[in-house]
Simulated assay, not measured.
Amino acid sequence: MDISVVVPLYNEVESLPELLAWIRRVANEHHFTYEVIMVDDGSTDGSWQLIEVLKETYPEIYAIKFRRNYGKSAALNVGFAAASGEVVITMDADLQDSPDEIPVLHNRIKEEKLDLISGYKQKRHDPLTKTLPTKLFNAATRKMSGIKNLHDFNCGLKAYRKDVIKNIEVYGEMHRYIPVLAKWAGFTRIDEQVVKHYPRKYGTTKFGFSRFVNGFLDLLSIFFVGKFSKRPMHFFGSMGVLSFFGGFIIIVWLILDKLISIAHGSAYRNVTDQPLFYIALVAIIVGSQLFLTGFISELVSRNASDKNNYQIEKVI
C-alpha cells in the first residue's frame, strides 16, 4: 500500500464527509493505493455514528473509537500502530490541512529518501493566542533539539517513512514534538514543506490556555527523556555527588577551622552554631537523595512497562 492517512479527530462531525471526499479525489488522481485510519478520540457529537455510515461509501476507512477522550498523542500512537502504508501522512480533521499536499509529501519522502517531513504553515489563520505561543515553542524547540531547519514542529500535516512511526512512541502530549522523538530514535533525515493553512470551516478550536503550560512542560520533558531516559543516573547521580561533596567539604573546612583556632588559642565558634553548617548538612542530605533517585530511576527505566494502554470501544 502506498499511503496511510492517519486522522485523529474529536467532535468534527461536520467536516468528515468533505475531508474523505477530498482525500479520495486526490488519491485517485495520482493513482495511489491508500487507507484512511480515523481515530475517534471520544467524540460526543455523533462523529463515530457518521463514520459508521461513511464506511459503506468509503471502504478504505479503518476506524478506531476510544471509550473516552485521551488526547491527540494517544490517537496518533494508535493510528501509527494500525498504519500499513509505505508513507504515512497525518492531518487534522478540521479541514485546515489540505489533502492536496499529499502527493508532494509522498514524492519527497520516496525520492529524497527522507524520514520525516513536517508541514510549515507560513501564513496561518489562527488567533494570536494560538500563534504567539506556537512561535515561542518552535524557537525553544529548535534551540533545545538541534533541529534547525524546522519552523513549525506542531503542524498536524506531516509525512513519515513507515519505519519512523513503527519505532517511536507518542504518549502524554508529545505529538507537538514528534520530530524530536524521531531524531532521538536515530531518524535524522528531517525536512519541512511549506503547506497551505485554511481557515477553520466548522466547529471550534480545541486550543486552550492549559496547552500553553502543558507545551512548556512537555518541552522540558522531551529534552530530559531524550537525553537521560537510558541513563538517569548520569543526571541525578552527578547532581547528587556534587551536592554531597560540596556539603562534605564545607563541614570538613568548618571542623579544621575550629581545630586550628584551638591550636592557636584563638576564639572560635562551635561548628553547630554556624549557619554554614546547616547549609552543608542540607546539601549532604539532598545529594544523598538525588543519588538514590538516580539509582531507583535506573531500576525503573530497565523494567518500565508499556505507557500506552487505551480503552478501545470499537474498531471497524
Rank of each mutant, 00 (worst) to 15 (best):
A27F: 10
S47W: 03
S47I: 01
A21I: 03
E18F: 05
I51F: 01
L50V: 09
L16I: 15
G46D: 06
R24Y: 12
E18H: 06
W22R: 03
Y34S: 10
R24A: 12
W48N: 00
I51E: 03
R25Q: 14
A27C: 14
L19H: 04
I37W: 08
S43H: 08
W22H: 11
M38L: 15
D40C: 05
H30I: 10
G42E: 09
L54N: 09
E35Q: 15
H30C: 11
I51C: 01
V39A: 02
V26K: 05
R25M: 13
G46A: 06
P17R: 04
E18G: 00
D45F: 01
V53Y: 13
L19G: 05
R25N: 13
A27D: 10
A21D: 08
S47P: 05
E35W: 06
L16K: 00
F32Y: 15
E52R: 15
V39C: 08
L16N: 02
L54C: 07
E29R: 14
T44Q: 11
T33P: 07
V36K: 07
G46W: 08
A27W: 05
E18D: 04
V26D: 10
H30P: 05
E35A: 10
G42T: 07
M38Q: 08
M38G: 10
L20D: 02
E52K: 15
